[in-house]
Simulated scan of single mutants.
Amino acid sequence: MKINLSGHHVEVNDSIKEHIEEKFSKIANHFPTLISLDVIVSKEHHQYQVELTTNYEGGRISATGLDGVMYPAIANAAKKLDAALKHRKGQLKANMHTKPGATTPEIAHEKVQEMNLS
């Protein structure tokens, strides 16, 4: 999985890159069809915000994490992205199965009408 990392009012250094690659390696293993992930780390009003966006099976998925410290904000966003990907995967699997319809057979109705219940 390719990770496109950029910073807004934050200098992105090697330790941040390594931490992000480590966090998202688990997600890449669980969802091997993910091709790329866009990560934007920004700092505004003494809060770090991490925005994640990706495409998974035809749907655009995004997640954000906020915290006063950068590393918990990354962990927060990773947790939300994992939950969103699992939800999307569940939706796709549910659409593959045919749902049985609740119907009453016509034969049973006809047989009850023919019976002499008096």
Rank of each mutant, 00 (worst) to 15 (best):
A63L: 01
I35E: 07
I107L: 09
G101K: 05
H46W: 04
V50L: 00
D82S: 12
F24C: 06
Q47K: 07
K17P: 15
I27W: 14
L66G: 03
G68M: 03
L52T: 10
G59V: 07
A77G: 02
T33S: 10
I27K: 06
V69L: 15
I20E: 00
E51P: 12
K93G: 08
Q91H: 13
S42T: 09
I16F: 14
V41E: 02
N13K: 14
A108G: 02
A84P: 15
D38V: 01
K17L: 08
N95A: 15
K89V: 03
H30Y: 12
F24L: 09
T33E: 14
Y71L: 11
L92P: 03
Q47H: 08
S15T: 10
Q47D: 08
V39D: 11
E106W: 00
I27T: 13
V10C: 08
T98E: 11
R88T: 11
V50Q: 04
E22F: 09
N13T: 15
F24R: 07
I107Q: 03
L92I: 11
A102L: 14
H9W: 05
Y48Q: 05
E11W: 01
K23F: 00
Q91A: 11
E57F: 07
I20G: 00
T33K: 09
A84E: 05
V41T: 14
P72G: 09
P100M: 09
S36H: 05
A83W: 10
E18L: 10
A28W: 08
K17V: 15
H109Y: 11
E44K: 13
T53M: 05
L81S: 03
G65H: 04
A28S: 15
I61N: 01
A94I: 03
S42C: 09
A84N: 05
D82E: 13
G90D: 07
A78N: 01
E57C: 06
N55P: 06
T64Q: 09
E44A: 15
Y56D: 09
K111R: 06
P100Q: 13
A73T: 07
R88W: 14
H46G: 09
T64N: 12
T53F: 07
E57Q: 06
K80P: 06
I20M: 01
N13Q: 04
T98A: 10
Q47A: 00
I20C: 02
A84H: 08
T64I: 10
G58A: 04
N13M: 06
K80R: 12
T54H: 02
I20H: 01
H87R: 10
G101F: 03
L34V: 02
A28H: 09
N95P: 05
G59F: 06
K79E: 10
A108Q: 04
P32K: 02
T54V: 03
D38N: 05
H45Y: 05
L92Y: 01
A75C: 03
S25I: 04
T64A: 03
N76Y: 04
L52M: 10
R60C: 05
K79P: 00
F31I: 10
E106Q: 08
T33Q: 13
L81V: 01
Y48N: 13
E57P: 14
K43N: 12
G101M: 04
T104Q: 01
T33F: 06
V39W: 08
A78D: 08
L85S: 00
A75L: 07
L66K: 15
Y48R: 02
R88E: 04
V10F: 14
L66Y: 15
H97A: 14
I40S: 13
K86V: 02
S15E: 14
K23G: 01
V69A: 09
N76R: 13
G68K: 14
